[in-house]
Amino acid sequence: MTTTALTATAAETRLRSVLRLDAAACAAFGLLMTAGFALVDPLLGLGPAWAVPLGVYLLGCAVALALVAGYPNLVRGQVIGVVVNNALATIAFAVLPFTGLVDLTIGGYIVLLGGAALVALFTVLEAAGAARI
């Protein structure tokens, strides 16, 4: 019984770390897109009409992730909600560059597709963590 308790605690600790890292990445990119959109627009080609709402969304995600990670007892349903959100974000980031809705630069393609890959990685890690709690 002690082994199970230790394993669950270790799994929760790892999951909290992944959630916090995801929150930090969302916060950093969200701040860059909102406060620094004038700097990144020439590099990415998103324009403020796309960059600012994306940044606000990411800042909201950062807050939600930090709250889920900081809750005294991780709630599996909340973590599954994070996984679903991340899966949808992965699809959106991967598809948007090819829709013709945004006139991206090469840097924009790299950032959005790289972001899709990073969010996909968080999705897999958080899904694995959810399965262990």
Rank of each mutant, 00 (worst) to 15 (best):
P72D: 06
V82W: 04
G77E: 06
A51P: 07
L67G: 02
L74I: 03
L67V: 12
A64L: 14
V79C: 13
L46N: 00
A69E: 10
A49L: 14
G77T: 01
V75G: 04
N73C: 07
L59N: 03
A49K: 04
G70D: 07
A66V: 02
A87Y: 05
A87E: 01
L46T: 11
V79Y: 04
P53C: 03
L59F: 12
V56C: 12
V52R: 05
L46V: 02
V75S: 07
L54V: 14
P72Y: 09
Y57W: 15
I80R: 14
P48T: 14
V63Q: 11
P48V: 05
P72W: 09
N73R: 15
V82Q: 09
L88Q: 02
A69D: 11
V82M: 09
L58R: 01
G55I: 13
W50V: 15
R76S: 00
G77W: 00
Y71I: 01
V68E: 02
V63P: 04
A89C: 12
L54N: 01
L67S: 02
V52S: 10
A89I: 01
A62I: 04
G60A: 11
V83P: 06
L74F: 01
P53I: 13
W50F: 15
L54A: 15
A69M: 08
V63N: 12
L59R: 04
P53N: 08
L54F: 13
A64R: 03
A89E: 01
A87P: 02
P48C: 07
V83K: 02
L74H: 07
L58I: 10
A89G: 06
V75M: 11
A62D: 05
A51N: 09
R76C: 06
Y57M: 11
A64M: 12
L88M: 10
W50E: 12
V83M: 07
V68T: 10
V83G: 13
C61M: 15
G55L: 09
G47R: 09
A89L: 14
A87H: 01
V63H: 05
A49Q: 13
V52Q: 09
V79F: 07
A49Y: 11
W50G: 06
L59I: 08
Y57D: 06
R76V: 03
P48N: 08
A69P: 07
